[in-house]
Structure formats: C-alpha cells, structure tokens
Design a protein around this nucleic acid. Structure first.
Length: 547
RNA sequence: GCUCCUGUAGCUCAGCGGAUAGAGCACUUCCCUCCUAAGGAAGGGGUCGCAGGUUCAAAUCCUGUCAGGAGCACCA
C-alpha cells in the first residue's frame, strides 16, 4: 500500500518512468533488511557508476517521509522501511469493501464456463471449468466489471445421437426412474463398447442427429427427457456449489443462426462448398469445415452462431471461454473464422485453457465410464467433514467444509497445469487445504467473540508477527488485481493460504485477550477476518464463525 | 511428422529477471493446567529435466535437446 510513496520518491531522483520503477521494486528476502528494495543495477550502465555507489548516492538525496520511515543502502540495493504504525492504522480501518476497485467500471466481460454435456454426469474433470469460471465471475465483479456468466450446455452433437439410439435400443425404465443419470451413463458406455464391433450404430447415431435437427417429434421427446433429467442433476450440483449463471442455454439453440452465418460467408465468397455440399473456409491453407455434407450444423457452426448472438445481445468488452486445453485449436479456429468473416468483436474473445484432472496416470473420461463422479466426491468430502465436526463437537457446517475442500483443490493450481486428484488429498483437511483456511477464520472469530470490546490504540512496539500480518493483509488488493488481469484464481488461493499461515503464527505467539495491547490486536484480528473472508469469497469458499 | 502445454524436495504444488530457491503432505522430535491441536515450533530432504546463449544478474528470457501429456475429424 505504501509502494506508491516509494515510487514518487524515487521518480524525483531517477530518470525512469513510474511504471519502470514499479517493475523494479521488489521485496527483500528478509524483513530485517527492509520492506521494499530498489536494485540499482539497471542504472549503473547509464550513470557509469557501480550500483553500490548509486544506492549510496540515492540514500543521501532521499529524505524519509511519514510513510517511509527509513531508507538504507545495502550493497547495490536501496532498501526502504515503511512506517508500520502508519500501515497498521490503515489496516485496522479496512471494511468489507477491502480489495474492491472500480477498475472495470462500465466494462462487460462475458464468461462462458461449466458447459456440461447433457446425458452425461458431471465428473471431477468437468468441475474445473465450473469452479474457475465462478471464481473469475466473482473476481471481475470485485474489480468493478460487469461479468455475465453463460452456461452453454452441450445439448446436441454426435454424443446425443448416440445416446438417443442407445435409449431406444436398451433403456431400462426402472433404472431410469431410480437413478436417471446413472442409467444414461450406462447407455452411453454400452453404445461406445458396441460401436467398436458394429459401425452401423455410428451411422444410426448420425441419422438420429439429423432427424432431431429436422424436428422429428419422437426423437425430440426422448431428447427432451434426457435434457430434463440432466438439468435436474446439474442444478443439484450448482446449488451445492453455490454457483449461478446469468444465462443457461443449449448449443442447439444456435444451429439456425450458425447456418445463416455459413450462408452469408458463402455469399461473400469467404466460404466454399465441396462437391458433396459440405462447407469450409480455408484457414492457413487448411480446410476448416463449418457445415456437414448432410447440411447439419456441427459444433463450430453453433459456436459461430452463439458468439455472434452473444455479442449482439451483450456488447461485451471481452468474452472468456473457460475450457479444457484440448480445445485450444478449436477456439483458435473459431476466432480466426470470425475474423475472416469480418466480425470486429473477434479481437475481444479469449480462450482460457486449463489442464487435465488426473487420477493416477489416467485422465478422466466419460467414454469408458472410468470416472469419478462429482456427486460422489462431494458426498464423500461432506461425510468426512461431518465426522470431523462430530469429533470436535463444534457447530461447523459440513457442506461448507466439504465443498470448500474440493474448490480449494481445484483452484490452488495454476489453470495451465494438470490437477492430480487423489482421495487421500480430497479427504485431507490439514495443511494447504480449504478447511485449514476456514479453520483459521473460525479461530479469529472465536477470539473476537470472547473478547470484550474496547477502543483501539496502537502500541509502541509492534511484534514481528503483528507486522508480518499487517503487511500480508496489505497485499490483498494487488493480488486481486493481478488475478483478474492474468485470469488466474490460484494467485488468490495461494495468497489465502499464506495469509492464514501468517495469522496462525501470530495467534500462537501473541495473546490477544488479556494482553495490554488487546484493543489493537482485536482490531488486527478483525482486519484479518475481513481480508480472509473477501479472499475466500473470490474463490467461492464460504466461512463459518465456528468449526 | 507438425503444433500446443507441462518438467522445481520422495509426493502435491508456489516462485517466472535480482540478495541464502519456498509451502503443504510424508518422515524425526517438541508444544493442549495457554483465545478451538482442522493449529504451532524445530530438523533432515534440491546439480530448479539436460546443453548452449542473452544479461552486471537466469529456476525465471531465447535457442536446441530429452521426457510426459494433448491436439492435428464433415466429434464435442
């Protein structure tokens, strides 16, 4: 929070732009060396002096201020010591708005996330898009943007054709009633197995798809049933996860719009027809098909339609597609196609990719039915939480704890990296986990609850744990901004862990209640709670007063 | 074959141009007459895949190379 002061001090003496100075400023490895450091290497060439001497010279020129109480050259670095009491004064004043900005005022960001396929259950691999997307929604909202969450259901496509064929052939009505999601999964797995020895089945699935697109009533009825059953199971999970969308709409709604775009492209000679009537656009010398020879829309046809419709509807400043890294080429093509078709908004589209969820060496896949159902994961972690709460005889909320554990596992990794899923990890509530963070919050709440209120006064001697906590809290706004800019919730997750750790170190060696600095320490604990609560809010993890 | 992503402690991950590379798990000790031990303290454990290059400075940037994963459909 006092970085700006240092930049303005330095910019008076150094011939560098404020942004350049900001980039150079760093944190010393050890707090005893200072709170901020300015390395002088970059200047030494220009000034033809050793960096040590430059640091020395700057030291003589700069005068401490109210916020920066001491400046000290250490070798080639010029180190700054902030006035901790001043910072403490500011930190204990923070409220629920801490970290919020109006950076994105008036800007709309559409976020396409979750997007499960109907007819398939959600598994632990699906959940990444859902949880990352939700966290981005929260983060952009915090930063003053107007985020629009879109759940683009995969309600059409060859997998649906396959499922409808299987439904007609092998459906067990009793099982469908008992556990619809499971029965649909069985049908799908069975189809994929049989398909290998019977290629006719694949043809049948394609036929079905065409019938469906042409509006065949019998097919539509089955589809509607699949859609309904799936929507119910998705909503159950979204409810548990406390995730909301502004719009939930199926891909199938954009087939017509997509085809219209294809026709326009043909008219403008951007697209061409094959002799068999399939339509393609040449991208980097390669044919990219945008309509099938049987004139049905494919995934990309619908995506074209959806993108154009969305821009018309929302006039977004940016749209982020949150999907698996395996779809990278698809989105690159989609963006290139839109550009080739002269849609200016193509520049506003971004694809945020994320890695796979692995269980051992396996990547989760629905095809073979080798999956870990999300519902099972949630149930098991919640059950574990229930046991832990019972053991401790506290008033913790098992759902909040269980869900928090799962969300944290998913968010703590950088999106680009794979997530290694194991039951051991999912059911562990110690160390770098969601429940650890919630526990820290509950401890802080407990202290507040037990203390009697008095007025705050900052003592003359801040302990090193107090200082560490104050400084850590002060970093929060920068972290949120960076997470938004880089579309990376893991920055917030890792920060939350560091924050909780710093707090735990603090309360172990700094008694709050009954201490002569109780008034100040209570305020500090309160500030910590506010900061952690906001930080966890951005991850979609709920806190409890007790657990 | 071409393209993309990932290689950091036994495992899971931070760090992504600066001063001795950090957490968590696991392992060895210690701390509940003390605000919830889902906690804290201490310890062992690393040629940052490998080789060059750029730089005053490289885990971090560039090139090459090896390993793992993925994509290269009128599937989504």
């Amino acid at each position: 929070m006092f970085k700006k002061e240092i930049i303005s001090l330095l910019s008076k003496e150094i011939n560098l732009k404020p942004e350049q100075i900001e980039n150079l400023i760093e944190t010393p490895p050890n707090p005893e060396m200072g709170d901020y450091a300015f390395p002088c290497f970059a200047l030494s060439k220009k000034l033809k002096k050793s960096p040590d001497k430059i640091a020395e010279k700057l030291f003589k020129k700069l005068k401490p201020t109210k916020e920066i109480e001491q400046i000290k050259p250490i070798g080639p670095y010029l180190n700054f010591f902030i006035n901790k009491k001043e910072l403490a004064k500011q930190i204990i004043k923070i409220n629920a708005n801490f970290g919020k900005t109006n950076l994105g005022k008036g800007k709309k960001i559409a976020i396409d996330f979750s997007a499960p396929n109907i007819g398939k259950p959600m598994h632990i691999g699906h959940i990444r898009s859902t949880i990352i997307g939700d966290s981005l929604m929260r983060t952009y909202n915090f930063l003053g943007y107007n985020p629009i969450g879109i759940n683009y259901l995969g309600d059409v496509g060859l997998h649906i054709g396959k499922l409808i064929v299987a439904y007609e052939l092998w459906l067990n009505k009793k099982n469908l009633k008992k556990n619809p999601v499971n029965e649909l999964l069985n049908l799908y797995v069975k189809f994929n197995a049989k398909e290998k020895t019977n290629p006719k089945l694949t043809e049948q699935a394609k036929e079905k798809l065409k019938k469906f697109e042409l509006g065949d009533l019998k097919t539509e009825k089955i589809w509607e049933n699949i859609r309904k059953v799936s929507a119910e199971s998705f909503n159950k999970i979204y409810e548990m996860l406390n995730i909301n969308f502004h719009e939930t709409i199926g891909q199938s709604q954009f087939s017509d719009k997509g085809k219209q775009i294809v026709i326009n492209a043909l008219e403008q000679k951007i697209a061409k027809r094959e002799p068999d009537q399939a339509v393609y656009v040449l991208l980097d010398g390669k044919k990219k098909f945008i309509l099938r020879s049987n004139q049905t829309a494919s995934y990309i046809t619908q995506d074209l339609g959806a993108a154009v419709s969305r821009f018309k509807k929302y006039k977004f400043d940016k749209m982020i597609y949150v999907t698996d890294f395996r779809q990278k080429q698809h989105f690159d093509s989609l963006f290139s196609l839109l550009k080739a078709m002269k849609y200016d908004f193509a520049d506003k589209l971004v694809h945020l990719t994320f890695g796979a969820v692995k269980f051992g060496k396996e990547i989760m896949a629905t095809r073979k039915g080798q999956i870990i159902l999300l519902q099972d994961v949630l149930n098991k972690t919640i059950e574990k939480a229930r046991k832990e709460i019972k053991k401790r005889k506290t008033k913790g909320d098992k759902t909040k704890v269980g869900i928090g554990a799962i969300k944290y596992i998913i968010l703590k990794n950088e999106p680009a990296k794979d997530v290694q899923f194991s039951w051991e990890q999912a059911l562990s509530f110690e160390g770098n986990t969601g429940p650890y963070l919630q526990y820290s919050y509950a401890r802080a709440s407990s202290i507040i609850k037990k203390a009697k209120k008095t007025k705050a006064k900052i003592s003359n001697h801040l302990t090193k744990e107090e200082i560490a906590l104050i400084k850590k809290i002060s970093l929060f706004p920068e972290i949120v901004e960076r997470a938004g800019k880089l579309m990376n919730p893991s920055l917030i997750a890792n920060y939350s862990h560091e924050l909780a750790q710093t707090f735990n170190e603090f309360y172990h060696s700094n008694k709050v209640i009954g201490n002569k600095n109780q008034t100040f320490r209570l305020k500090l604990v309160q500030a910590f709670r506010t900061c952690l609560k906001n930080s966890l809010y951005l991850l979609g993890i709920e806190v409890m007063e007790e657990m």
